[in-house]
Amino acid sequence: MTSEVFNVYIAVLIATIFGFVLVGSALIGNLILSPRQKSPHKGVTYECGMLPIGRSRAQVHFRYYLFAILFLIFDIEAVFLFPWAVSFVELGEQAFYEMLVFIGILAFGLLYAWKKGVLNWR
């Protein structure tokens, strides 16, 4: 069994290496084939033809963080749902209602966020 699991993740390791090699070889191929002419104007970031004004790493609106936090909550819930999903029929009624309570608590949280207007993009 362990060798089976090991066998699967060898392929994952090799896939990862292949991904890096493919991108790397494309970049190296580009390095060999492409022309290079230095010019001070080429290094300016694109801003519709105007010279960029101010810093680009500007502040980002707070609402992005709220959605990120909501995502974290529901993503962790999804992680708990996966093992439950494949075994709740064997475990029977009780497992189902326990998960229902868990989903209910988080659904209440979503409802609260909805009521508070977090889900409205303003």
Binding site: T45, Y46, E47, P52, S56, R57, A58, V60, Y64, F67, A68, F71, F74, D75, A78
Partner: peptide, 21 residues
């Protein structure tokens, strides 16, 4: 280091994580 890219990047983050669920 580009304003459009930064805005697009955070938008991509917000959209992709939301629809992930």
């Amino acid at each position: 280091d580009n304003k459009y890219a930064l805005l697009g990047g955070v938008r991509a983050g917000a959209q992709l994580i939301s629809y992930e669920i």
